[in-house]
Simulated assay, not measured.
Amino acid sequence: MTYSVAPAAISAAGTVGAARIVGVSLGHTTLAEADHWIGSLSPAPVLACTHLIAAPFPHVAISLLTTSTFETEPELRPAADAAASGQFGRAVRFPGVGRLTGELTVSEILQRSSISRVEVLGSGLADRDTVVDTGDFVRPQFRGGELVLVTTPAVGGRLVPFERRDPTPCCADH
């Protein structure tokens, strides 16, 4: 897996060391559980992605760009390895994520973070001057070494991230 962000050089113990990609599978059953676990890490990883894994049961595995080490139960080791070597994921932690709050133009998102591009679902690249209402929740996709924020059109010519913190359940109004 190749990330387009620079690795950190400080280890959990405070000594200089090289960050590396590690896979972790703890059996999280939801993205929210995995996000919460990632948010509890100290020090925070440079990059953390979630990956939906089917075996040995459907769950969420995690890849981290970090200097830390993590244990995975032997039966979940293949899932952890798949997460570490995967080309696709959902980024939870990445450089600049804390600066992506409120309403920002696509250009500002690209300048403030390691997101490489912003796309409109089914329509291609978003115009650099278009405003994105982040909802203070940005989860770009990790695709082949790049972070790509997928958005959808919203009221007033704005965009919103495709993944929302509190999505409306499918068929909620039926």
Score class of each variant (00 low, 15 high):
Met1Glu: 14
Met1Asn: 09
Thr2Trp: 14
Thr2Ile: 10
Thr2Arg: 12
Val5Thr: 10
Ala6Ile: 02
Pro7Cys: 01
Pro7Glu: 03
Ile10Met: 09
Ile10Glu: 10
Ser11Glu: 07
Ser11Trp: 06
Gly14Lys: 03
Gly14Pro: 11
Gly14Tyr: 12
Thr15Tyr: 15
Gly17Ile: 01
Ala19Cys: 02
Gly23Phe: 09
Ser25Cys: 14
Ser25Lys: 01
Ser25Glu: 08
Gly27Trp: 12
Gly27Pro: 11
His28Pro: 10
Leu31Val: 14
Ala32Glu: 14
Ala32Asp: 15
Ala34Trp: 07
Gly39Gln: 09
Ser40Pro: 04
Leu41Asn: 08
Ser42Lys: 09
Pro43Glu: 00
Ala48Val: 02
Ala48Ile: 07
His51Glu: 07
His51Cys: 08
His51Leu: 06
Ile53Leu: 08
Ile53Thr: 15
Ala54Arg: 10
Ala54Gly: 12
Ala55Ile: 05
Phe57Asp: 11
Phe57Arg: 14
Phe57Gln: 13
Phe57Leu: 11
Pro58Lys: 01
His59Pro: 06
Ile62Ala: 06
Ser63Glu: 07
Ser63Lys: 04
Leu64Val: 04
Ser68Trp: 03
Ser68Val: 05
Phe70Arg: 02
Phe70Gly: 05
Phe70Ile: 04
Thr72Gln: 08
Thr72Glu: 09
Glu75Leu: 09
Arg77Gln: 12
Arg77Gly: 03
Ala79Gln: 05
Ala82Tyr: 12
Ala82Glu: 14
Ala84Lys: 00
Ala84Phe: 02
Gln87Trp: 15
Gln87Thr: 15
Phe88Cys: 11
Ala91Phe: 10
Ala91Met: 04
Val92Asp: 02
Arg93Glu: 15
Arg93Gly: 06
Pro95Ser: 02
Gly96Ala: 04
Val97Arg: 07
Val97Pro: 07
Arg99Ala: 15
Leu100Gly: 03
Leu100Ser: 07
Glu103Tyr: 03
Thr105Trp: 11
Val106Ser: 04
Glu108Ser: 10
Glu108Lys: 03
Glu108Ile: 00
Ile109Pro: 12
Leu110Ala: 03
Leu110Cys: 11
Leu110Phe: 10
Gln111Ser: 10
Arg112Ser: 08
Ser113Leu: 01
Ser113Asn: 00
Ser113Val: 00
Ser113Trp: 02
Ser114Val: 02
Ile115Met: 00
Glu119Lys: 00
Val120Thr: 03
Leu121Val: 10
Leu121Arg: 06
Gly122Phe: 00
Ser123His: 13
Leu125Phe: 08
Ala126Ile: 03
Thr130Arg: 08
Val131Lys: 06
Val131Phe: 10
Thr134Gln: 02
Gly135Phe: 09
Asp136Trp: 12
Phe137Ile: 05
Phe137Arg: 04
Phe137Asn: 11
Val138Gly: 10
Pro140His: 05
Arg143Asp: 14
Arg143Asn: 11
Gly144Ile: 01
Glu146Ser: 06
Glu146Tyr: 08
Val148Pro: 07
Leu149Glu: 03
Thr152Gly: 01
Ala154Thr: 10
Arg158Tyr: 06
Leu159Ile: 09
Phe162Asn: 03
Phe162Val: 02
Arg165Pro: 05
Arg165Lys: 13
Pro167Asp: 03
Thr168Arg: 08
Cys170Val: 13
Cys170Ser: 09
Asp173Met: 13
Asp173Ser: 15
His174Ala: 14
His174Trp: 15
